[in-house]
Amino acid sequence: SEEKKKAKERLERLGASSELARELLDRANGNAEKAERLLRKLL
């Protein structure tokens, strides 16, 4: 979806690899905010 694509791009801008961004979104069930929080914990 367009929303998921935007979320993935945002995670990548924050420093996630394409693969990591995809994994985070999967774990967050597509929830962009939750995926971002997970990423911030990792960085």
Score class of each variant (00 low, 15 high):
43 L>Q: 09
23 E>G: 03
43 L>M: 10
31 N>A: 04
23 E>R: 12
28 A>T: 14
19 E>I: 07
14 L>F: 04
4 K>F: 15
35 A>Q: 00
2 E>T: 10
21 A>S: 04
6 K>H: 11
24 L>T: 01
41 K>W: 14
12 E>T: 08
27 R>N: 06
33 E>H: 11
34 K>Q: 14
5 K>P: 07
39 L>N: 00
12 E>L: 09
26 D>G: 07
34 K>N: 08
33 E>M: 10
28 A>V: 10
35 A>S: 02
3 E>C: 08
6 K>M: 10
21 A>R: 02
31 N>D: 15
4 K>M: 15
27 R>I: 13
41 K>A: 13
8 K>G: 07
7 A>L: 10
11 L>W: 04
40 R>V: 10
6 K>N: 10
12 E>R: 07
23 E>K: 10
13 R>T: 08
28 A>W: 05
18 S>D: 10
12 E>P: 00
43 L>N: 05
39 L>Q: 00
12 E>C: 08
43 L>E: 04
5 K>G: 08
5 K>W: 10
2 E>N: 10
4 K>E: 14
31 N>C: 01
5 K>D: 13
24 L>G: 00
33 E>W: 11
6 K>L: 13
17 S>E: 03
5 K>N: 13
28 A>C: 12
5 K>S: 11
26 D>M: 13
37 R>K: 11
11 L>D: 01
41 K>L: 14
39 L>D: 00
9 E>F: 04
12 E>Y: 05
2 E>I: 11
14 L>Q: 05
26 D>S: 09
2 E>S: 12
38 L>A: 09
17 S>T: 12
9 E>R: 08
19 E>D: 12
13 R>Y: 10
6 K>E: 11
7 A>P: 04
42 L>F: 11
18 S>Y: 05
41 K>Y: 15
27 R>H: 07
32 A>P: 10
9 E>L: 08
1 S>I: 12
20 L>S: 02
7 A>H: 06
18 S>H: 08
19 E>C: 04
32 A>V: 15
29 N>K: 09
34 K>P: 00
29 N>M: 10
4 K>Y: 15
27 R>W: 15
18 S>Q: 10
14 L>P: 01
36 E>I: 14
